[in-house]
Design a protein around this nucleic acid. Structure first.
Length: 315
DNA sequence: AACTCATGCAACCGCGGCCGA
DNA sequence: CTCGGCCGCGGTTGCATGAGT
């Protein structure tokens, strides 16, 4: 493939944006919108390529960007979302209002990755460095991995939907929308926008709890004792399978999972971690139980609270 | 004070996808 | 269907700055 460079200053030294350049770019966009990026520099009187201008605007000048230190909650969100979504920074960014993908990526690479490594957790797989599972644990981990894969797909789709909604809110996209107003109106998203994943994550949590209790000699078998669910495990599996399917234009049902190549080892890793911990420390399972239960609740809360909706702040 | 090294992050590159001609 | 332009994304680079010696 390959493309010709978009600007003539390729190979030259990087040039930091000056306050004057920022001012020019800001003033131009505020007055005219960015329009076509390649055409913008000439119109705005900037000796930059369009790509550079776009980057400067999206990562720095946009008025709705939050800069500065990441809060503890944001850090947790990044770690958890990275575990689910991998290096899909833009998707992660849709769940962190006012943070740019570049900002998150930099923060991950310079801070969080190192911190996880220090903790003995592989920042890529989110697995603890040493792992040894028995066959039963492997089975559950595989199931949860499958579930997590679906969840990754969903989060990604959600991110795409969010982007679409944002783009439709912009003036230029509105023009496109107006041009296409002969088309059937867009269906509003179902309200409330309760993420479907909630049940899946709940299922994950439930599956983990079940395993833990089994490991601990509990008599509880198939029922997932998750707070928001009364489905048994086979019901969950059915639900998950159905959620993983989608209708294409021909009305055929196909497995959307098959079309996704996603790196989502988080659940697996997390499960490994939890299961391993519980296996190794059955004697203090109560503590583990409480701690891990809280962790799952955190994830559920996170996804619940940060799922993009039309009410989400517009970037 | 001067130098080196490490770190953070802004800026850039190149690829893939989308869309219109 | 193909081609070319544009956009968005993830990975990488390199500058600025602070810490350490």
């Amino acid at each position: 493939m390959g493309r010709s460079p978009c600007c003539e200053n390729v190979g030259l030294k990087r040039r930091t944006w000056t306050p004057e350049e920022d001012q020019k770019l800001l003033a131009y966009i505020e007055e005219n919108g960015h329009g076509s990026w390649p055409a913008l520099p000439a119109k705005a009187g900037l000796q930059r390529c369009g790509k550079s201008c776009r980057l400067r605007w999206t990562n720095y000048l946009r008025p709705d960007i939050k800069r500065g230190k990441f809060s503890l909650q944001e850090e947790q969100s990044i770690i958890q979302l990275h575990a689910l979504l991998g290096n899909r920074w833009s998707a992660i960014a849709t769940h962190l209002p006012k943070r740019t993908d570049n900002d998150i990526k930099n923060y991950w690479n310079s801070h969080l990755k190192k911190r996880l490594t220090k903790m003995g957790i592989d920042p890529v797989t989110h697995k603890p460095k040493s792992d040894s599972l028995n066959p039963g644990q492997v089975k559950v981990a595989a199931t949860l991995s499958h579930i997590a894969q679906w969840e990754s797909t969903r989060l990604e789709a959600e991110a795409r939907e969010s982007t679409l909604l944002r783009s439709f809110s912009s003036s230029s996209a509105q023009l496109v929308l107006n041009k296409a107003n002969a088309l059937p109106p867009l269906q509003p998203p179902p309200l409330p926008l309760q993420p479907l994943c909630l049940d899946v994550l709940t299922a994950c949590k439930g599956a983990w709890l079940t395993t833990l209790l089994k490991e601990n000699g509990s008599t509880i078998t198939g029922t997932l004792e998750a707070p928001t669910s009364t489905l048994n495990f086979s019901d969950k599996q059915l639900l998950i399978r159905n959620l993983g399917k989608s209708n294409n234009n021909n009305g055929e049902v196909k497995e959307s999972m098959d079309n996704t190549v996603l790196v989502s080892n988080f659940m697996e890793g997390l499960t490994d971690l939890f299961i391993e911990n519980s296996h190794d420390h059955l004697e203090h399972d109560l503590n583990d139980f409480e701690e891990n239960n809280n962790y799952w609740n955190n994830i559920l809360n996170l996804v619940n609270s940060t799922s993009p909706s039309i009410d989400s702040p517009v970037f």
